[in-house]
Design a protein around this nucleic acid. Structure first.
Lengths: 353, 353
DNA sequence: CTGAAAGCGCTTACAG
DNA sequence: CTGAAAGCGCTTACAG
């Protein structure tokens, strides 16, 4: 279809298309852009389209942007592109949604730098490059002071709410995710459900612990000796589970999948077979852990892809003046964290009561 | 510094700077762009810079691009942004190198689609958006037929060489990485070194197996019953290791970290303690596996970050007419895969001979 | 060392 | 339904 393009010395411009179709540039522009409130005779339009197709016409974005002030590009500033295992899915969600809407996604990493000046520089880069809007993604933050210049264009936050409650934001509903785990365990007959908590003080920690506590209380179950804290990694999970095992839980719900890896290890050392003697549940669905464990791990998925997509579509709405931003900004949008059942949960061996 | 920007109705243009400094637009342009072969009196230049600073002048990229035909943006087309655990590091390397060079990185995911038409459409998106150059990243391919339109601009390949040997390419030196593992094991005194191979037929599989074989042969060691094949995941590693264990290896080198997880499991079932009774080595350094295992896993790092950075700097060189492309394209550039030693290797229990 | 002027390729009132 | 013309904000020969 586009064959031969490579040979073209100069790529065809709107002028060439106009000449070829025997109409004015104005008409070409109207036809190709389907300008609203403009009627062009169908046969004229057809001629224009044929000419454009034949010449392989591709509008020059610079020229268009110079007139319209729109780049159709949105910028994504994200912490820890590589550090966090999930940033990839945020990027993917944002990119695919952008493509669906005819937008391009540019990305820049903010080095986890606590210095707001730096973040502000990253944002500035996008402003300079005429990004139509900006997505600012952080992880493990509850509330942030958004870089000042972020307000120069429509913007959206992923993973944190802005301190002035003025920028639309989206984050995972960690608490509801944790509640669903406990409820599933209860439905399977578990009563002594322990929680291996993270000792880090981040929103995810608080949300998951809260969800566990609420669900247990709602079921009228005691918690007292069933919560232990550890670092948010395999070693922390190992240590916490070892502690928990002294209080004879029938299930251990871990703050994250890495801690669950440690829980498997601890169970193994105590001669416990999962899930026969002990059920284990993780959180994050952090590849490749859940599928690599023996047995595979039941865990909770984080809506990274969805947050990326949400950010782009919300931004697109803002750009098109569908300004429900105030509405949106009042409370951050919470996206569900679906439970993903695999093999690590079974009914308790001895029926609890 | 940039305070007050938000209030500015219209952002200052070069005309405003010129007026403010009492010079022509030409001079402003020369000063701010440091145009070669143009001398401007230092005090004039200072006045211009002061005016630009004061007005918060930011050149309009559309206008500039319209004249220079350069966007300072490069496009990265990558397979499996999220599927593969490592794409994030490629992106990060590319993005940081781009930033260092004053370039912006835009990305687009190609859906692992075997249909070349689709990839060609992704490339077209960047061509339409006036990307100065394009990076085309694939994983697990040796040689690809590059999309036709990729040749419309300077381009660079990551992870595959193009069938016509005409586009610069970079990939990991899998074979050398595998050799270094065996050599390290030999240096520790191991002789019965087994390899848990992947049964997939991809370049990485072949390269790592080849490296193992060469190094063993170079040491005059037999291989015969020391290679077993499995799927490239934990279950495959488990099965392969179980098989291997019947032939009493003192070390098992696994195709990747996921297989190594399976090897740990197999060793545990046989009552073997790592590394006392059996040394295990992985490949990929796929987070969070190596740090989550008990003991932590010695493995080989893949140069994803470096490949991303290499791609951008090579592309930048091409864009600046430093066309060593022919030279580069003849053979793909191979980047080293450094060995990362952790806790899973020790000397063999019974001194081999 | 400095400036007047053309032009990059589009979109968009405005007119007919 | 269609077109002539201005102008978006820069860069860059060219001239002096």
């Amino acid at each position: 279809m586009t064959t031969g393009n490579r040979m073209a010395e100069k790529t065809a411009g709107i002028r060439d298309v106009a000449a070829h179709a025997g109409v004015s540039q104005t008409t070409v522009s109207h036809v190709l852009n389907a300008t609203p409130h403009t009627r062009v005779a169908e046969d004229t339009a057809a001629r224009v389209r044929a000419a454009a197709e034949k010449l392989g016409y591709r509008p020059n974005r610079f020229a268009r942007g110079l007139r319209t002030h729109a780049s159709d590009m949105i910028g994504l500033v994200t912490e820890e592109i590589a550090t966090t295992p999930h940033a990839g899915r945020i990027i993917l969600g944002a990119q695919e949604e952008a493509t669906r809407r005819g937008l391009t996604l540019a990305i820049i990493n903010s080095e986890l730098n606590p210095d707001p000046e730096v973040d502000s520089a990253q944002v500035q880069t996008f402003l300079d490059r005429q990004a139509d809007g900006i997505i600012y993604a952080t992880v493990y933050h509850d509330e942030i002071v958004a870089p000042e210049n972020l307000r120069a264009r429509p913007a959206v936050l992923i993973g944190a709410r802005d301190s002035t409650g003025t920028i639309p934001a989206v984050m995972p509903d960690e608490q509801a995710g944790a509640v669903s785990v406990v409820e599933m365990l209860l439905a399977r007959g578990h009563r002594r459900i322990a929680f291996a908590a993270s000792e880090e003080d981040v929103p995810a920690t608080r949300g998951r612990l809260l969800g566990y506590q609420h669900a247990m209380r709602a079921a009228g179950l005691p918690i007292d000796d069933l919560v232990a804290f550890g670092t948010a990694d395999a070693r922390g999970g190992y240590a916490a589970t070892l502690q928990l095992l002294d209080h004879e839980p029938t299930a251990v719900f871990c703050y994250n999948d890495r801690m669950a890896m440690g829980a498997y290890r601890a169970a193994g050392e105590r001669g416990l077979t999962i899930p026969r003697d002990l059920s284990v549940v993780g959180f994050d669905d952090q590849a490749p852990i859940p599928e690599s464990l023996f047995p595979t791990l039941t865990t909770v998925t984080l809506p990274h892809y969805e947050m990326g997509a949400w950010a782009v579509s919300t931004l697109d709405a803002l750009l098109n003046g569908k300004g429900e931003d105030a509405l949106l900004a009042a409370h951050p949008t919470l996206l569900a964290c679906p439970l993903l059942e695999r093999e690590s949960v079974a009914p308790p061996r001895v029926a609890g009561s």
